[in-house]
Amino acid sequence: MAENRSLVSIESLSREKILSLIHRAEEFEKNPNSKILDGKIVATLFFEPSTRTRLSFETAANRLGAKVIGFADPKITSGTKGETLKDTIMMVQNYADVIVMRHYLEGAALYASEVANVPIINAGDGANQHPTQTMLDLYSIYKTQGTLDNLNVFLVGDLKYGRTVHSLIMALRHFNPTFHFIAPKELAMPDEYKTYCKEHGITYVEHEDFNEDIIAEADILYMTRVQRERFTDLMEYERVKDVYILKASMLSKARENMKILHPLPRVNEIAYDVDDVKHAYYFQQAQNGLYAREAIICDVLNL
């Protein structure tokens, strides 16, 4: 059997692989439209709705000349009739050259990649992995800083449940980052990831405060949402909910090159007055997802 080129988890990507995907994304940004995937069919199977991610993938496939099949709403699929994931994958692989899938169960993409004979791209499996989000984060960091090496990356908000920040730590382990973890106690970075940092020689600093002096050292300020439902103690939520909101007034000491990222959607964790500041980058970040996904689709197809 040929090598399975699926992209299931960010951990499996080497430094070289990450950089080659970034360079590929740069090329696509210069020329987003091509016919590389002419005659190919990309299946997008969304067992859990995610309009943002699906549109990004489908745009990427369309811009590369592929045709797209699939479903956006799991209610209309036979999964609801009791069909197993394996059966759905076995059926779709008869039609498509690559399967992009989002699933509410953890490990679903890995399992699909084991049973399929076409590559699988994981577009999110529950709370587990979302590697294309991480690739677009990395591409955004690279584009704005000119490098991924030796950066001060500040992660803010829900660091306990935030899948994107965990994946970012793993991906950046190849690039000698310094992390600053800024979170309320209840949503602090889990020990598991702090141990991971120690094992990989990554320096990190923890803060509970979030203010302009702390931000001053940042190259990247990666914001995430502090969600009410994550708190067991609602008093604690009330106490911290406004502490981790970024306002334009907090950016007076920020480095010239500093950029603010956010996986979106945001609720109130970035005040609207930040949108017009030169450091704001979250909307371009989302656009970068298109180029990163074009690069990933081509890579798993070995094109």
Binding site: T84, L85, K86, Y104, L105, G107, Y111, D125, G126
Partner: peptide
Amino acid sequence: ANPKCITNNEPM
């Protein structure tokens, strides 16, 4: 032990 793991929801 994870109820949301694929192995608890798929015959595998």
